[in-house]
């Protein structure tokens, strides 16, 4: 029986991710983009798919309720749209030069989902109200 201590592959991967500048860029952009895109998806009605729970029916993008088939759920679709969009932005950001990505403020990861999202919703509501009133 061997008594040699081996580092688990998962631990090695975690350690290399934790010291990777590219992973940091991805995580920062993914974090604040998810918060921003999710609110946009909800307000604009951009689900990747719609789900009819009573009939187990899935439809791509926004689908209105069908007569006699109960309610439609968009949350799964909004989550998918925002996650995919944020992941795409995060991956694209890793291709930017490091001197540029270093300038992305780390505070965005709590400002956007914290005070940012409710402010954006109130602002968008006010703009939509103003547009509706002509």
């Amino acid at each position: 029986m061997s008594t040699t201590a081996h580092t688990a592959p998962a631990a090695t991967t975690a350690k290399s991710l934790a010291s990777s500048g590219k992973f940091k860029t991805f995580a920062v952009v993914f974090g604040f983009s998810t918060a921003a895109l999710y609110v946009a998806c909800d307000m604009m009605g951009w689900p990747l798919f719609s789900y009819h729970p009573a009939t187990n029916r899935l439809e791509w993008f926004y689908a209105p309720p069908r007569k006699g088939e109960g309610p439609v759920m968009y949350w799964y679709g909004w989550t998918a749209t925002s996650m995919l969009g944020a992941a795409t932005l995060g991956v694209l950001a890793t291709f930017l030069p490091e001197q540029l990505t270093r300038r992305i403020p780390l505070a965005l990861v709590w400002i956007v989902p914290g005070p940012g999202d409710p402010t954006a919703v109130l602002f968008a509501d006010a703009v939509l109200d103003a547009l509706a009133q002509g």
């Binding site: 991710l17 992973f23 995580a27 998810t34 918060a35 989550t79 990861v109």
Partner: peptide, 21 residues
């Protein structure tokens, strides 16, 4: 609740990174 659950999910990678460092 559903909004916060999704937004929180998106914050997990940076949360993990910040604590690992």
């Amino acid at each position: 609740k559903e909004h916060l659950a999704t937004i929180g999910l998106g914050l997990l990678p940076i949360y993990w990174y910040l604590w690992k460092n």
